[in-house]
């Protein structure tokens, strides 16, 4: 006979309710209320500073965001999509390559895997400062190497040409280890006899990868692509430390943070940007998830 885990009598009635009450209250206070407040604030000119009025203005913030081709909003969306796309392609490619190289349980491979994963455990601030020092155009080693090889100067994170690609590469350096681990887990789940059958049928390495490994890694690819893209769509911390949103690196996340909490804060406009970021994440993240899951089923 099964014992009820919540005891008997009155305790049996209220303990389950009390158990779900705590997280529910937490969600209401720290999840639902801020979300609803963000929606409401996006229709106001509220600065966010204490004592200042809400100033309901209807769709004014949304109108401002879509008002012209020079809008910071459209530029931020474009930068975000480039950033997320660049990171996703490089990180997935590199993570997969490293996983294929290091999937086996050989001596020394554990150390390599740990070293590649290590940047993930550093805080964004540490990584940002580290690369700012490496890429300092006056005192950094990168500039000295660049000048020695190419004989010209480069301002790296202060260059409109280089800043965004460098931010993408630094992000990839930080998180490729995680992508690699997900792929290694996926690779180890592929049965060996499938490879043996392919080998008996005369399949070469490329054919085996294209027809067996890549299709059977579809669930791992779904996880990696989804997490990478969604993470990049909300990126602001690394950008803040590396370039402060200058030189064509202002993502929608950074723009939102700056508008809502900057020197002259406008929480109303920032909330509208948060809504736009949510919509972008829903569209791109949701679209990707739908497409990738369909691919898994089809395979």
């Amino acid at each position: 006979m099964n014992q009820c885990p919540f005891g008997t009598g009155r305790t049996r009635r209220w303990i389950p309710w009390a158990s779900i009450a705590v997280p529910t209250i937490g969600w209401l206070v720290f999840g639902l209320y801020p979300s609803l407040a963000t929606i409401y604030y996006s229709f106001t000119q509220y600065s966010g500073l204490p004592g200042t009025p809400l100033d309901f203005c209807g769709l004014c913030n949304y109108r401002n965001a879509f008002q012209g081709s020079y809008s910071d909003f459209s530029a931020a969306i474009e930068t975000t999509v480039k950033y997320a796309g660049g990171v996703a392609v490089l990180q997935i490619g590199l993570g997969l390559g490293l996983a294929l190289l290091l999937k086996n349980r050989r001596r020394g491979f554990g150390l390599y895997r740990a070293l590649i994963f290590m940047p993930q455990i550093f805080s964004v601030t540490v990584v940002g400062i580290l690369f700012s020092m490496i890429l300092d155009p006056q005192a950094g080693p990168a500039e000295k190497g660049w000048t020695a090889v190419l004989g010209s100067a480069n301002s790296f994170l202060g260059s409109s040409t280089w800043a965004l690609p460098l931010c993408i590469l630094i992000n990839v350096w930080m998180f490729t280890g995680y992508t690699m681990l997900v792929y290694i887990a996926g690779l180890r789940r592929i049965p060996q006899d499938v490879y043996e059958a392919a080998s008996l049928d005369g399949a070469g390495r490329w054919r085996t990868f294209r027809s067996i490994t890549w299709p059977l890694l579809a669930p791992a690819t779904t996880v990696n692509v989804f997490l990478t893209v969604v993470g990049c769509l909300g990126e602001y911390a690394l950008i803040l430390v590396l370039t402060d949103g200058q030189f064509g690196t202002q993502t929608i996340g950074f723009y939102m943070f700056n508008a809502a909490f900057g020197q002259n804060p406008s929480l109303g406009y920032g909330s509208m940007l948060a809504m736009a970021q949510f919509a972008l994440t829903l569209m791109l993240g949701g679209g990707l998830l739908w497409g990738l899951r369909r691919r898994e089923v089809a395979l």
């Binding site: 700012s132 890429l135 300092d136 155009p137 006056q138 005192a139 500039e143 100067a153 480069n154 301002s155 790296f156 994170l157 202060g158 260059s159 030189f247």
Partner: peptide
Amino acid sequence: EPSASGVPAATAATQ
């Protein structure tokens, strides 16, 4: 200075 666009305010004066 050609590479000045990469120089942050925190270190410019001392550099």
